[in-house]
């Protein structure tokens, strides 16, 4: 050990007996923790407190109770089912896409192209993404018109609309699938060739290898990635707001209406809605880190 890092000798004895908060070492991390407290922790605490206050400032459970009724309950139901659906579909489609591009048998240039494009598409979201789909599948969208002019198929007469739950799910997949590709790629790369060789030496078919070796190893990573996708879709605000302006009532859009003051109700309900989001995401992040720990076993 070098002495350069230690405190000078004469202070050494007492310094060791002093509790950690008496030594000035921790002062170095004060600015960071102060910033996080001021702009992340305290706002969250304020929010939680606000969720339990009525308009006069008294304590109440009414705001939280209202989450389980009518409009708010259905907003949570829409948000959770939309996020779960796109997480599940995005997870499967993205996983298959990553498998197709990253394992053998495909041209070499596919891989860097897919990862680059996934990086762009996973970051290309919000308002511009909503516009891209309006230009494609909106009422006067390019694909909508193409289908009605060439095949005579009028999507909007057949009951399709971009500005509904289905349309929103279709758009969410545009960032969910690339996100899945990026998140699952390291796990697919981590599948060792030896495992497959060992399996086929023992007489396993390709299907048996996936059924008994590949998928069980990948499963924690796949589930973990799907939870990440769920939280990602659940927090989305810009895309649903720009697309439907509130037609499809997802929770973030409802919260936005409270902030904008479009909804003349007590602010406590807005805080309660936000608190509900924190709870849902916190539970999914907790499950995610559990699964990550299991997945880490195989990626040493």
């Amino acid at each position: 050990m070098s002495t350069a890092l230690e405190t000078p000798k004469k202070q050494r004895g007492p310094a060791r007996k002093r509790p950690w908060w008496r030594s000035p070492t921790w002062l170095g991390v004060v600015p960071f923790f102060a910033f996080v407290t001021l702009f992340l922790l305290l706002p969250s605490v304020r929010l939680v407190m606000g969720a339990f206050q009525d308009e006069a400032g008294g304590f109440t459970f009414e705001n939280v109770r209202s989450l389980f009724q009518g409009q708010f309950l259905s907003a949570y139901w829409t948000s959770i089912s939309l996020s779960a659906l796109t997480a599940f579909l995005g997870g499967i489609l993205g996983g298959l896409l990553a498998y197709a591009a990253l394992t053998g048998g495909t041209p070499r240039w596919v891989r860097p192209l897919l990862t680059t494009f996934s990086g762009v598409a996973a970051n290309f979201a919000g308002v511009p993404l909503a516009f891209a789909f309006i230009a494609t599948l909106g009422t006067t969208g390019v694909v909508t018109q193409f289908l009605s002019e060439t095949v005579g198929l009028d999507l909007y007469d057949r009951g399709f609309s971009l500005f509904t739950f289905t349309g929103l799910a279709l758009i969410y997949l545009y960032f969910q699938i690339p996100l899945m590709v990026l998140v699952i790629a390291p796990a697919i790369d981590g599948l060792r060739r030896e495992w497959k060789e060992a399996a086929s030496n023992l007489g396993a078919s390709s299907g048996q290898y996936w059924r008994y070796v590949g998928l069980p190893i990948l499963m924690p990573s796949i589930l973990g990635a799907m939870i990440l996708l769920f939280a990602n879709a659940f927090a989305a605000y810009a895309t649903p707001y720009a697309l439907t302006a509130g037609n499809v009532g997802v929770v973030p859009v409802l919260i936005g209406q409270f902030v904008r003051g479009d909804v003349l109700a007590n602010p406590g309900q807005g805080y309660a809605l936000a608190l509900g989001m924190i709870v849902v995401v916190a539970v999914s992040v907790a499950v995610y880190s559990l699964l990550q720990r299991r997945a880490a076993r195989w990626t040493q």
Binding site: L40, P43, L47, G50, A231, F234, P252, Y271, V285
Partner: peptide
């Protein structure tokens, strides 16, 4: 991640 922007903004403003 747990306190996404839409939630953070309402907390900050409050």
């Amino acid at each position: 991640f747990v306190v996404p922007p839409i939630v953070l903004v309402i907390g900050l403003l409050a």
